[in-house]
């Protein structure tokens, strides 16, 4: 359903994802997490392999690609973590 339920969401970018895009936050129009991933990959083709291996967080919890986004959501790309 392109064009339907598209929200402008603010997306936080960390670590390798921030370096790959040169930004620590971007605004993307997307209805779901999956759409968001696709749009980010379209905007930064070089970061696509990293995006494909990243998880996504909505309101500071991991979210599936099917998760529907609302404008006030806090969304973040979580590249493979390496804490500890």
């Amino acid at each position: 359903m392109p064009g339907q339920g598209q929200m402008k969401v603010n997306v936080k970018l960390f670590a390798a994802m921030r370096d790959a895009t040169g930004a620590d936050r971007v605004t993307v129009e997307a209805g779901t997490v999956g759409e968001l991933a696709e749009k980010l990959g379209g905007r930064w083709p070089a970061a696509k392999p990293l995006i494909d291996r990243s998880r996504f967080a909505v309101n500071q919890a991991f979210a599936s690609h099917e998760t529907v986004l609302r404008e006030e959501d806090e969304v973040a790309v979580i590249p493979p973590v390496s804490g500890g």
């Binding site: 390798a16 967080a57 973040a76 979580i78 973590v81 390496s82 804490g83």
Partner: peptide, 14 residues
């Protein structure tokens, strides 16, 4: 705790 932290917690090292 350390194994799960390393797998899931949103922290990165360079």
């Amino acid at each position: 705790l350390i194994d799960t932290l390393k797998k899931d917690v949103a922290i990165w090292k360079k």
